[in-house]
Design a protein around this nucleic acid. Sequence first.
DNA 1: TTAATAAAAGCACGAACGTTCGTATTTGTC
DNA 2: GACAAATACGAACGTTCGTGCTTTTATTAA
Lengths: 200, 200
Amino acid sequence: MSKGLKTKELILKEAFAKAGEVGLSGLTIGDLSSTLGMSKSGLFAHFQSKENLEVAVLDWTRAKFARTVLGPALKHPRGEPRLRAFFDNWITWIETETIGKGGCLIVGASIEYDDRPGVVRDSLLSLHQELQNSITRMVHACIEEGHFSAEVDPEQFAFELYSLILGFHHFSRMLGDEKSLQRLRQSFETLMKHGKTYEQ
Amino acid sequence: MSKGLKTKELILKEAFAKAGEVGLSGLTIGDLSSTLGMSKSGLFAHFQSKENLEVAVLDWTRAKFARTVLGPALKHPRGEPRLRAFFDNWITWIETETIGKGGCLIVGASIEYDDRPGVVRDSLLSLHQELQNSITRMVHACIEEGHFSAEVDPEQFAFELYSLILGFHHFSRMLGDEKSLQRLRQSFETLMKHGKTYEQ
DNA sequence: TTAATAAAAGCACGAACGTTCGTATTTGTC
DNA sequence: GACAAATACGAACGTTCGTGCTTTTATTAA
């Protein structure tokens, strides 16, 4: 790996950490460069624009999420085991990478960019679509494997699961509710149970 | 009402609308003043600081929410009718004041300020605590009136309800999912049904 | 070791930010 | 209608922002 790529990696790692605190658009090249002990223009040259830097941070985050959350879950058997592994990995991700570190970069960026068209929003949208697809596929597998009732709506399940994640983020970070994790887990179990014994 | 207060009211109304798009900290005195056709310093004099302006916007929003969502719900009978009225009013609020208008100011501000101590965060925290208390009380009333099982945990219910609101906000604004409202309503019904026939 | 290339630095720019200050104008009261 | 108080204005301040140049230093391949 060339010197340039190594430096770029260091920059993105630092930018990922900082963006959780100040948001993606809250990143500044000046602050980032001084933290890393380099010049503004030197750092700037790696990305050619602030916007490119933000997209690069999103790509970097996406890759890391795939490597630490999605990937390992795929090693578990299709259906409920894989879905549960994914959920557990996700919680670990949230606890180690977001809560206590300024919040989740993706959650923040989604609020910032949900009405600002451009390449950042495009990248964010594609990230979210992929995430929803992953969840939906796993729920669908639960049905095929006979772990869930055939009447379960995978997209509705994905909607509720992501909602709970957002709620957990809010209750633990904004309200400082120490029971948030417990609440998240309990709601997830309710969701799973409802998946098995569907009735309505 | 004096001239000064009328102007202040106009400023806050405009600031409320704009903060949904750019966030609370994204408000700028220059932009706000030029939109309203007045000078920066003239507008500034009403609040003495940017921070005070942000707190004023939060107070204004809180009052409006109480007037249009919470207040009318209190006219309905205790228990399920009131809870449903509150939920319906909330949806109307979201549709008329947030979705399609740059997003919810409160949701955005919570992300911005969840790790920035100060008077803005204090104000936000108190707002959220009051909201959670209101929901919890209504659910508790559902139990007392016999509409809900006594085993229902009102705080868990409030957690799930707010999570769904956040999810709805995300799916409709970020993903542009046209079924978001339908999903929100369906999940709410599941939540209500679970409240009635509690089992676990 | 040298030559070509990549990476980083130095410096400056225009614009936008919140804020301050002195002054002008409008409002409300007697 | 006079006069104090409230309200608004215009200009300027010090900072910080992203970005564009030119020059210097470090890396890489022949």
